[in-house]
Design a protein around this nucleic acid. Structure first.
Length: 362
DNA sequence: TTCCGGCTCA
DNA sequence: TGAGCGGGAA
């Protein structure tokens, strides 16, 4: 049965070399008669699959065989299943930036000596303090938080992590979680029943509080009707929720479900990767124009085990040193590797527009 | 590309 | 005083 599926799959591939493999791939018969491990190799150029082959090698020479294929960057295989894998082609446009590891290490060191808001509030620092039956996902816990008058000890509830919770609720903001907690508004049922105006008051003055209160109600309703009060567990379904875009969907997949589908790229990751010259628009050396482009570009070369930690690392770095305005290049230990160091354009505030000059005159 | 809305900082 | 913040929708 399984071997029939495998042979038809092989035929499918040989007839159509650009076919995308299913993930996970076809099953391999789980018996002793099967002496070989099949390694499915897919060469990728940018996003497009350009070559697909199936190789059969004996397990005992697998490592040797694979080391003779240097273009293989990452793959998994097993007796039972062939999993997806990515291949770094020598001719690929996705070259790792020079010194990226040094830069990352330098940022890690800087981060270890400088506290950033994301360290106390970021969802990765998950809530062991959270009620056991509640898992909270949220967005917008960014640089703005440290400007607000919240005590640090009030912020211990901000986080989420995956746990064996049956009841989950996705919140769309960070800072209001404690107040929602005090009002028992942390389940889809409670949010669904609550008055939108009351939610608005509780989360005020979070950015976009009005829209977020409305989205919370909508999401709670969807979670109750479609997911039994839980949150969706796939990227596609998360993206269908109102107010949930790629940044939030990847964050939830990474941290809430421990299922890494992509890098969570927010404004800090987007800005810093571009400053470092780590990402570019396809086939160009131009900066990426939005976080989604950055994510795709970054994923082409950044090793998968960095996909989750890169977010809190760069967010904290962006909050404290590589700030949007007036980055502190003077204290940055990796500025030697940064093509944008000390080159930031002066803020528009220093060159007043005509309208503001006119206002001043009047 | 603009808007959302309160807030901070230069 | 007003630019900028930050992710998503229109």
């Amino acid at each position: 049965m399984a071997s029939t599926r495998l042979s038809s799959f092989k035929r499918e591939i040989s007839e159509n070399p650009s076919i995308e493999p299913k993930n996970p791939g076809p099953e391999i018969p789980n018996d002793d008669s099967f002496a070989k491990v099949r390694v499915f190799v897919r060469k990728k150029r940018a996003k497009k699959c350009i070559q697909t082959t199936v190789k059969e090698v004996k397990p005992e020479i697998l490592d040797q065989k694979l080391s003779s294929l240097p273009e293989i960057e990452d793959f998994t295989y097993g007796k039972d299943k062939i999993h997806s894998r990515s291949i770094k082609s020598k001719t690929s446009e996705a070259q790792s930036p020079v010194n990226w590891e040094k830069v990352l290490e330098g940022i890690r060191e800087m981060r270890s000596t400088e506290n950033a808001p994301v360290d106390s509030m970021g969802c990765e620092k998950a809530g062991s303090s959270l009620p056991p039956k509640v898992v909270i996902s949220f967005m917008n816990f960014s640089a703005k938080l440290n400007r607000l008058n919240f005590k640090k000890e009030d912020l211990q509830f901000w986080c989420l992590h995956s746990c064996q919770a049956k009841q989950r609720i996705m919140l769309l903001m960070a800072r209001a979680i404690q107040r929602l907690l005090q009002n028992d508004l942390l389940t889809a049922e409670a949010i669904e029943k609550a008055d939108e105006g009351a939610i608005k008051d509780l989360i005020y003055p979070v950015g976009f509080y009005s829209r977020k209160a409305s989205n919370m109600k909508k999401i709670a309703k969807i979670c109750l009707s479609k997911y039994d009060g839980d949150i969706p567990s796939t990227l596609e379904e998360l993206l269908l929720l109102p107010g949930i875009g790629p940044k939030m969907a990847h964050l939830v997949m990474n941290v809430g479900w421990n299922n890494v589908q992509g890098i969570c790229v927010d404004t800090h990751v987007h800005r810093i990767c571009n400053r470092l010259g780590w990402v570019s628009r396809p086939s160009t050396k131009q900066r990426t124009s939005n976080p989604e482009e950055t994510r795709e570009s970054l994923q082409l070369w950044l090793p998968r085990d960095e996909w989750v930690p890169i977010n809190p690392l760069l967010v904290g770095f962006g909050q404290t040193i590589c700030t949007p305005l007036r980055p502190r290049c003077g204290i940055c230990t990796v500025s030697d590797f940064c093509p944008s160091a000390f080159k930031e354009t002066p803020s528009p505030a220093s060159t007043p527009k005509k309208s503001s000059l006119l206002n001043k005159r009047s």
